[in-house]
Design a protein around this nucleic acid. Sequence first.
DNA 1: CTCCTGTATTTTGTATACATTATACATCTC
DNA 2: GAGATGTATAATGTATACAAAATACAGGAG
Lengths: 226, 226
Amino acid sequence: MTDKLRLNMNEYLPLRDVVFNTLREAILKGELKPGERLMELQLAAKLGVSRTPIREAIRMLEQEGLAVTVPRKGAEVAKMTEKDMEDVLVIRATLDELAVELACDAITEEQLAQLQRARREFENRILSKDLKKIAQADVDFHDAIYQATGNARLMAMLSNLREQMYRYRVEYLKDDSKYPELVREHQAITEGIRARDKSLAAGLMKKHVLNQAAAVKSRIRGQESR
Amino acid sequence: MTDKLRLNMNEYLPLRDVVFNTLREAILKGELKPGERLMELQLAAKLGVSRTPIREAIRMLEQEGLAVTVPRKGAEVAKMTEKDMEDVLVIRATLDELAVELACDAITEEQLAQLQRARREFENRILSKDLKKIAQADVDFHDAIYQATGNARLMAMLSNLREQMYRYRVEYLKDDSKYPELVREHQAITEGIRARDKSLAAGLMKKHVLNQAAAVKSRIRGQESR
DNA sequence: CTCCTGTATTTTGTATACATTATACATCTC
DNA sequence: GAGATGTATAATGTATACAAAATACAGGAG
């Protein structure tokens, strides 16, 4: 019998996970807007499943910080105040800094190559004017760094923090006057990691994250006044 | 009509939350051991509820990192490897450091008084030899600092990180030869915050957290070899 | 018109039923 | 006896049913 005949169990996902991913995507893409109610029956009907997996998905979104539920009233897409975003940004800046430091110590040649690829890809995508693609390339760049830390928990936490900002961040990327600066920052950070200069690279990353603060927060103000 | 006649809605909690808290406590206290299976029917019978709230509670525990589920096999209490703990400790050290820095900037006189109270309470509890109480006093001390940051997200994240270590940390506190050092560290940190000396206080806190590393990790080794 | 109240409707909370998959174990074959 | 196979049992996955609360709104009192 041939050895390489294995059932790909990755294909099976419980409905709750499918629902979770679907709702998560919808929230991040902005299809489900902050404050919008997540009604079980309606979602169940729309997605063609029963309420059970919907409810479980909502519990998961809740713990991820993407939904908020009030007992007996139901869940809604989490809103972020400017203060929330500020709090998240401070944490993210600190953890991103940590990630860079760890990456300086632990990055392998292969991972460094991956990081360079991601950086170049970002530079290319910028020309495309396709926001989603640009955002994804940016995500990939940062992920390459997270990956290099070798710290799975840190990766998970940073992904989650990024997720919470994503909705507002995409808007921020609409302003293409920032692109040259972003590219420069990515280059500097990459170079710092390559040289394994912790304090330089970490400082650059912190600045890179905090640079977004003003722009992203102003996005929130826009939402609040709606 | 009298103004102060309001129904205390805090009394109502959906069963899922009651179940969640119950299981969470049981895991942290060590009544449910790492690797132990969380079977829905069994838990439902034991707690006298149906499977639905149990399932939702499990989804929440999962996102908190206290449980792991394999599709179609079920959930079990999350195990921690030594590497996991190391990863968590690095993150916690960094965020605790951040918390102290923020606290130095933002702490009020009242909060400072609370911190001092918590510190003294810890010193008293140590004499009691009651591990749970000592651990709680330690939690309160750190919470006083988190509170002073004014950053709700950071508070939540640090609580979660602490939660994940708690099971092993309690064991660590059994070794009372460490108490004098703990007391000294708490005093130094408190004093640093009072003087609003960021770099001093933050450095002390980082050291305070990392000091536990070796002891807590050895606890894990003990568990793994079981 | 305004406020209150009662009722219908919607929505969540919880339990249960049914379907499917995993597991344990006895049985059979060689 | 070792390994394969079938079957019973138990667990999870999903849907549905029923209860209880929140909400919207119509109708009536003042």
